[in-house]
Simulated assay, not measured.
Amino acid sequence: MAASGGVQAVSHAPGCDGQHERQRRKPWSLALCLLLLLVLLLASSLAAITWGSASLHASTVWSVVSQQLLGGGWQPDAGQGGISQQHYQIVWMVRMPRVLLAALVGAGLAVVGVVMQAMVRNPLADPYMLGVSSGASVGAVSVLAYGSLAMVGIYAITAGAFVGALLATALVYALAQQQGRLHATRLILSGVAIGYMLMGVTSLITLTAGQRELANALLTWTLGSLAATQWSALGLPAAVLGLGLLWLLLCARQLNALLIGDEGAATLGLNTASLRLQLFVVVSLLTGTMVAVSGAIGFVGLVIPHITRMLVGSDHRRVLPVSALMGASFLVLVDLAARTWFSPSELPVGVITSLIGGPFFIWMLWRRTTAIPGGSA
């Protein structure tokens, strides 16, 4: 897929706070920001692997990881620096894949939030708020309940979540239209209404499928959880995120053009209908993949893009990579809090993100005059 149009550059969204100051920043500021965020991600990951019900020393974590990556793997009873089999299991088989999945999901949801806000020109848009995550949940639970899409094998749940997310996105977007124009209020109301309706559908499927095991699956997909993550779960979300982010970076100038409105984008030679159709597919694929492996985690796609734009401006060549790294660190830290704050009990990740995102959403409503991107649709 390739976005059409001959857009050269649209550097910022009209009406953004401090936009001119951000655009005058030196070119190396992006590199510095990315470097600092990489350091933050590494520090967050180390803390998440080290801390828990069984706390480990950082040197133990480093020994296990370095042996796996550089020394051909850990061998039991080999006297490798005093690293026991229990340490190996905790670091490499339990916490490491969980931390990596948290980083992938956090980055994916943040990127989706960035794209959705550009697509609809509304700072309140995110996959959870607009019902896209709920649509993905319906698709995933339908696969579990009825065994549909079996032809795609191990990717059946992801395929179901993708189809559900795509249908939910299209429905919300269609309902938000009025006389050919997209209205911000209708968008939010449509998203909330569709989201609640699809949550009801998810519950209905669970209660009528005759499988008690689906009750646990329902909790996972409605509140989000990264528990029991295995290495085998990382390949698909990593591939989808990498390819999706690469494509979106190539379309960064077209995304910038969307911020000035359809009429302005058309004057720059952009086919907005074609671009939005492609973005619908990419957003649905990213959302469906992340929901399939982690459940419906809310507010990441709302909080992270907004903070990112306050830091680096509205140019998507900056916003996309910075949001990805910031979202990764954010969800790694949230998952750490979810499994340590009430130890030995573990909270669903979505509970923590809701406690953070709810007040942030209220604050954004209160500060509506700084709406990003481009003001109301």
Rank of each mutant, 00 (worst) to 15 (best):
M1Y: 14
A2C: 10
P14D: 07
C16R: 13
D17V: 11
G18C: 08
H20V: 00
E21D: 15
Q23C: 06
R25I: 02
R25N: 07
S29H: 05
L30E: 12
L36A: 12
L42N: 01
W51M: 03
A54P: 00
S59T: 14
V65S: 08
Q68R: 04
L69S: 03
G72D: 07
Q75R: 15
G79V: 09
Q80P: 04
G82H: 05
Q89H: 13
V94C: 06
V94H: 13
M96R: 04
V105C: 01
V112Y: 00
G113K: 04
M119N: 12
Y128C: 04
V132T: 13
S137I: 08
V138C: 08
V138T: 05
V141Y: 04
S142W: 11
V143M: 09
A145Y: 06
A145T: 08
A150F: 11
T158F: 05
T158L: 01
A159K: 05
G160A: 12
A184P: 01
R186E: 09
R186N: 15
L187C: 03
G195I: 05
M199R: 13
L207Y: 14
L218A: 06
T222I: 09
S225N: 11
S225Y: 04
T229R: 06
G235T: 09
L241V: 12
L249W: 07
I260Y: 10
G264I: 14
G269I: 12
L275T: 03
L279E: 10
V283T: 13
V283I: 15
S284I: 04
T287S: 09
T287P: 02
G288C: 00
M290T: 08
M290K: 04
G295L: 01
I297L: 00
H306D: 05
R309G: 06
L311G: 07
V312F: 12
R317S: 01
V319H: 10
A324R: 01
L333T: 07
R339V: 04
T340A: 09
S343Y: 13
S343N: 14
S354H: 09
G358I: 02
I362T: 15
L365P: 07
T369D: 13
A371D: 06
G374Q: 00
A377S: 15
